[in-house]
Design a protein around this nucleic acid. Sequence first.
DNA 1: TGCGGTGCACTTGTATACTAGTCCGCAACC
DNA 2: GGTTGCGGACTAGTATACAAGTGCACCGCA
Lengths: 229, 229
Amino acid sequence: MRIALHDRVNGLSTGDQVYAALRAAIVNAELEPGRRLSENELADLLGVSRTPVREALARLRDERLVAIVPQLGTFVTLISPAAVEDAAFVREALECAAIRRAVERATDAGLAELQTNLAAQERAEQQGDTDAFDTLDDALHRLLAGLSGHEIAWTLARRANGHLDRIRGLSLPEPGYLGEMAAEHRELVAAIAAGDADRAEAAMRHHLRMVLSSVPHIQAVHPEYFEES
Amino acid sequence: MRIALHDRVNGLSTGDQVYAALRAAIVNAELEPGRRLSENELADLLGVSRTPVREALARLRDERLVAIVPQLGTFVTLISPAAVEDAAFVREALECAAIRRAVERATDAGLAELQTNLAAQERAEQQGDTDAFDTLDDALHRLLAGLSGHEIAWTLARRANGHLDRIRGLSLPEPGYLGEMAAEHRELVAAIAAGDADRAEAAMRHHLRMVLSSVPHIQAVHPEYFEES
DNA sequence: TGCGGTGCACTTGTATACTAGTCCGCAACC
DNA sequence: GGTTGCGGACTAGTATACAAGTGCACCGCA
């Protein structure tokens, strides 16, 4: 495991950095589902004490990315199709409600930001830079939440999103995937610019359900990552 | 402050109990908004060490019920009208989406549970037992979330709900309030029983917006509890 | 009497020590 | 040889000790 902490001069507490590092490792499946974690081992690896590690694990437990069993151990949770659907449900409810409000409240400045993001996505797509594209994807959804006036919804959705993020992290880069995503993003923004709330909501719903479609494929490739139903 | 821990033989860790005790105290405004909290003081009061207190405070921070300022102190957050609206937005989005699914998936057994809850609400209303009514209110919304197949949404909404819960905790028991709430609950269940998703969603939306209406009154009575805009 | 500077008391963050409990393997006994 | 019981090596939960930093009060001086 090659988890590393960033410089600690950036204002974040050690616990925050441990949290970020562990979450990234879990979402990227570097820490694969089912893996046993040891607070002591993690603390040694990261060069910190158990205290910030425990704090990070507690937050990850609230996101259902790890399960802490007293006196037994801490484990990266297996991916549960039900939990993935739960996360998708929450995200769909929040983001569809948010985009409706975004349509009502959209400003020229806000639309310009969205266009800037779309342009950057197109560049990332042409260069095949998946990481950059994912970052821009997140940023776009955050911008939309901001336009709705309830950016907090984005934070919450993100917190409920661990299982979905893992699905995305495990999705193999299929040809045409980035292009399709970018097209859907353009449709989202176009609907907002047109002031058509129903169209925007429908586009968002369709867009979010895309992620779910890759679950069966991943489950076929990595059955050991999933709970048995 | 009369915060007390329950018996510790109920399977909950000390940190969980501290969290529950502190959250209840904050929501009931026993720990009033703006109040300064000291980890040491709380630990002494509760007869535990700082560690479980810190764990509880970290969770409350994620709910935005406390603000932790490094090297300075921990404070019960002031009620922010914006945060209240954020919470209402999140809850409305989640519960409206949930009740639509509940309409699709409602079973006879589920409807029977709802009816049982309604009957209990009527008893609590006649006896003027506000606490019991609040508990049944929570239970009803949880039942609805359960019927939707995404009970997790309820957990999440609840976690985002701290500011709304404080509003409810500060709402003075106005005459007729319980009756109105009970009537709205009956309408919710009736809409589900009728299989009318639009009606159910509209009823839920109206019901949830009721809570917001008491904000100005509370703000007038306790301006010191609120952030200045 | 007013103002400025220093030091103390208090804060949270982190590290470490200790407690209680579970699992697993080895050894002793049947 | 099989089974049972005990002990060691882990686990997370909790308590305590230490570090770093902030605000405020108090004291001395002009």
